[in-house]
């Protein structure tokens, strides 16, 4: 096992909400009891639909949102110090890259300034010449021409803007990047360029990535390990190949069949993600699961270990894994094996 660079334990986020006419108080659980590790230089992919808690998890790991309970350790040190503040040394180690390069870059700053701003504010580098030198290096690294430094974001295409955002993120030499849907706003051909660039930077600088995406194929391309989230919980988590090739949760299988081009692989799914304000009883996925049984509505399955390092929160994970004809799970397993 590689040394865990990022270590997340039992992370939970609850928001108090006031609902209805009488101002009834309720609790919205956005993230519930999430634990995972990311090895140094590795990529952990969080995949799930909107409202599954991916972004809230990322914000807690970045320290942008206080966790209700649970802990985050980075490089062996707790993210929060005794005063309940984000450790300044750790904060400098991590940088976010956000989805929309159209809104995440200031339209009033030229690209050179956008990139060197974190260096100036964190006083990592001083002197105009040294800054200009670093900006020029960074432009090179992300594959932008040198004259881009004097341009403004509105003169650039979406892909070029995302390159600027990446250059800005790696400017302070972070060790950990949180990539929140980094390519979903981009066209297919540009997507591939950005994903390759992220991979190159990772191997060059030994960066650790937390990648958030709704697109299973993007996560699969980038990640070493994958966590599949649904309504704030992990349904399945483990090494990429285990989760994707030997899935043992119906939700993973459904996401997989949705990302596949093969029509025969389609698994039926009905309805939409339920409101996190009134999550279903038992297994959170049972209302939409094509294979749900009685027990699923009453008892919430715990994440249980499979043979090869993956964990799955399904009562029938064992049957699915064995491909055993256990009731309806037979159809499920053959559906998955067919791929």
């Amino acid at each position: 096992m590689t040394h865990a660079f990022v270590s997340v334990r039992e992370l939970t986020k609850e928001y108090p909400v006031v609902t209805g006419f009488l101002g009834k108080k309720a609790t919205l659980t956005a993230v519930s009891d999430i634990s995972f590790d990311i090895g140094e230089g590795k990529t952990f992919g969080l995949v799930g639909e909107s409202g599954s808690g991916k972004t809230t998890t990322a914000r807690m790991i970045l320290g942008a949102e206080p966790a209700t309970s649970g802990s985050v350790k980075i490089d062996g040190k707790p993210l929060m110090n005794e005063k309940g503040r984000v450790d300044p040394v750790l904060r400098r180690m991590m940088q976010p890259v956000l989805q929309d390069p159209y809104t995440s870059l200031s339209p009033r700053m030229c690209v050179g300034h956008i990139i060197d701003e974190p260096l100036r504010t964190q006083k990592l580098l001083s002197g105009e010449r040294a800054l200009a030198q670093r900006v020029s290096e960074l432009l090179d690294m992300v594959g932008l021409p040198q004259d881009a430094a004097r341009r403004y974001p509105n003169e650039l295409s979406g892909g070029q803007r995302q390159r600027v955002a990446i250059a800005r993120a790696i400017a302070p030499k972070p060790r950990f990047l949180v990539l929140d849907e980094p390519v979903s706003a981009l066209d297919v051909s540009i997507q591939a360029q950005i994903l390759n660039l992220l991979k190159d930077l990772q191997s060059e600088f030994k960066l650790t990535y937390l990648l958030i995406s709704h697109d299973l194929s993007v996560v699969s391309f980038m990640s070493d390990a994958i966590g599949v989230m649904y309504l704030g919980r992990f349904m399945e988590i483990g090494p990429k190949d285990e989760v994707l090739r030997r899935s043992s949760h119906p939700y993973t299988m459904i996401l997989k069949s949705a990302a596949s081009t093969d029509e025969g692989a389609a698994l039926p799914i009905s309805g939409e993600i339920p409101s996190p304000l009134s999550p279903p009883s038992g297994c959170p996925f049972h209302t939409r699961c094509p294979f749900s049984q009685q027990i699923c509505a009453t008892t919430q399955p715990e994440l249980e270990a499979g043979p090869a390092g993956q964990f799955s929160a399904c009562h029938f994970a064992k049957d699915i894994r064995a491909g055993k004809p256990a009731g309806t799970c037979a159809t499920l397993a053959t559906g998955a094996m067919g791929r």
């Binding site: 051909s189 540009i190 591939a192 994903l195 991979k199 699969s220 391309f221 596949s260």
Partner: peptide, 24 residues
Amino acid sequence: QGLLDAVPTLDQDAERLALIPGNP
């Protein structure tokens, strides 16, 4: 061809995606 190659798929084990250089 470039467009079809640039899409990541679940079955592939590629280290890099094939890509179309440049911008439209």
